[in-house]
Structure formats: structure tokens, C-alpha cells
Simulated assay, not measured.
Amino acid sequence: MEDMMEQLGTFAPLIFSAAKALVVLIVGWMAAGIVSRTVRRRVNATPRIDPTLGNFFASMVKWAILAIVLVAVMGIFGIPATSLVAILGAASLAIGLALQGTLSDLSAGVMLIIFRPYKLGQFVDIGGTAGTVKDISMFTTELATPDNVQIIVPNGQAWGTVITNYSAHDTRRVDLVFGIDYGDSSDAAMQVIMDLASADERVLGDPAPWIRVTNLGDSSVDITARLWCQAADYWDLKFDLTKQVKEAFDTKGISIPYPHTVEIHKTA
């Protein structure tokens, strides 16, 4: 019994330190979350600051607090901060090799925030992956596809590939191609398209609508319409005008041919 009490007394400081370290970790983790959310909320509430910066700064603050908590925990076990720095310095090469992908994502995240090729809420294509930007953290970019599927892209991959930003400009050009039969009047078809485009308030007058015959296909005369609109109206205008032109062609007796083959018989 005395031996047990003696052993318990020996391990008591270690148990106390472990319990103290656990409390510090829990409190530090909760504090990091609270401060991070506060920073995000304060930054996003400032109209002059882009919301993208709010998320990134919140992520930086969270990881900085967790780093301080780690140093505090080491101090509880009697490891001085100077010794911790020395250990990290000696192991920097191994850590760098093991976490080179993570460090690359971190540095790429900084570059994304500085140059900002995309922002929160914009629709982008990152290396063939398209979606709306939901979050940009220190290490990853979160996208949501049109069917609301979450996609996490490492910042290193995002920065190192081609980025297509469909929301970078206020206006976009809608390109529509309509094929009509060779026996129909191309001028009449172009006038139908022009009338519908002029009547739609979403179509901008500057640049003016551009409608031309652009191709003589195997089965149709192709007419291309290039119309400018606000970026937010792009898809609705594209779909609505396609339907309206089809219905107007039907009313005017302008046919939209399907691919077919004409057989010609020649007499000897």
C-alpha cells in the first residue's frame, strides 16, 4: 500500500501537468474558434474590405492562437519556448520535406489573397473544376457546384493551374447559333432574332447586338447572334431567347432542319 502511494505521489505532478495541459488545449481551441469567428464577422461588416479577406484573416488568427497554445502546453511540461524553437529549427528540414505540400498550399493561399484572381460568391473554373467560391482559407478553396456539391481544392493546385473567372466582369456576351433551311430567307430569320433581342430589356444596347450568317453547313444555314447582358442575366437570357426564337421561327414558317442526306438520281 505504501509502495502504491509512493508511486502515485511520484506520478502526481505528471498527472497534474497532463490535466492542466488538456484544459489549456480545450480552452485554447475554443478561444481560437471564438476569436476567428469574431474577426470574420468584424471584417465582413466593413464595406471597404472584401469578404474574401475576412475568411483568410480569420483562418490566420485561428492558427496563430493554436500555435501559442502549443507553446503554452510545452511550457506546462517544462519545455522552455527557446528549447521548442531550437527543436523546431533542427527539425525544420524534415518538417519541410514532410509538409511541403501543405506549405505550398499555405504560400499559394497568401498569393491568392494578394492577387485575388477570384472572390467569394464568384463562379469560376479552376483547372477544369467549376463552381461558386464559398470559402478561401489558408490551405484550401471551397467550391459549390451548380447542383450544390462541395469541392475542396488545395490552394497549391488552384494557384498553379488555369483559372477561368466567369464573374470577374459585370457584363458577358451571349453567343447563340441558329440553323435554318437553305430554302428560307436568312434576312427574315435575322430580323426575327433582332426583333426579339431588341424587345428584351436584358440585352444591352452597347455593345450593339451582332447578328450575321456565319456558316453554310451540310444541312443548314447557320446564323450567329452575339448579345451583351449583365453577368447575372447570362443563363436566363440564353435559355429564354433560344425558346423565343424557336417559337418565332415556327410562327414565321422558318424551319430549323435536322441533318439529312439528299439522294440525286442522274439519267445516263
Rank of each mutant, 00 (worst) to 15 (best):
I79Y: 13
A81V: 07
L84C: 05
L84K: 01
V85C: 02
V85R: 07
I87F: 10
L88D: 00
G89C: 10
G89Q: 11
A90S: 11
A90N: 12
A91E: 05
A91C: 09
A91Y: 10
S92M: 08
L93M: 05
A94R: 00
A94E: 00
A94L: 03
G96A: 03
G96P: 06
A98R: 15
L99V: 00
L99W: 02
Q100A: 00
L106W: 04
L106I: 08
A108W: 07
A108Q: 06
G109T: 12
V110G: 14
L112H: 11
I113G: 02
I114H: 04
I114P: 05
R116W: 00
P117Q: 03
P117M: 02
Y118S: 03
K119A: 06
F123H: 13
V124A: 03
I126R: 06
G127S: 12
G127M: 10
G127K: 13
G128V: 07
T129H: 11
A130M: 14
A130L: 09
G131E: 11
G131L: 13
V133M: 07
K134H: 03
K134W: 00
K134S: 06
D135G: 00
D135T: 00
D135A: 01
S137L: 03
S137V: 02
M138V: 14
M138Y: 05
F139L: 06
T141P: 01
T141W: 00
T141Y: 01
E142G: 01
A144L: 07
A144G: 01
T145C: 05
T145W: 04
P146L: 02
D147S: 09
N148L: 02
N148Y: 03
V149H: 07
Q150C: 01
Q150M: 03
Q150P: 01
I151L: 02
I151R: 10
I152T: 06
V153I: 07
N155K: 09
N155A: 08
G160E: 03
T161P: 06
I163E: 01
T164F: 00
N165E: 04
N165V: 06
N165T: 07
S167E: 05
A168S: 06
H169V: 08
D170A: 15
R172P: 00
R173P: 08
V174P: 10
L176E: 10
V177A: 15
F178E: 07
F178Q: 11
G179A: 10
G179M: 09
D181I: 04
D181E: 13
D184R: 15
S185V: 09
S185T: 12
S186P: 15
S186T: 15
S186L: 12
D187S: 15
A188Y: 12
A189V: 11
V192Y: 09
V192A: 15
V192I: 15
V192D: 14
I193D: 13
I193T: 12
D195Y: 05
D195W: 08
L196Y: 08
L196G: 09
L196E: 12
L196T: 10
L196C: 10
A197H: 11
S198R: 15
S198F: 08
A199L: 01
A199D: 10
R202E: 10
L204M: 15
I211L: 01
I211S: 04
N215M: 11
L216T: 12
L216F: 15
G217D: 08
D218M: 12
D218T: 13
S219N: 10
S219E: 04
S220R: 14
S220V: 06
S220G: 02
V221G: 08
I223N: 09
T224D: 10
A225R: 05
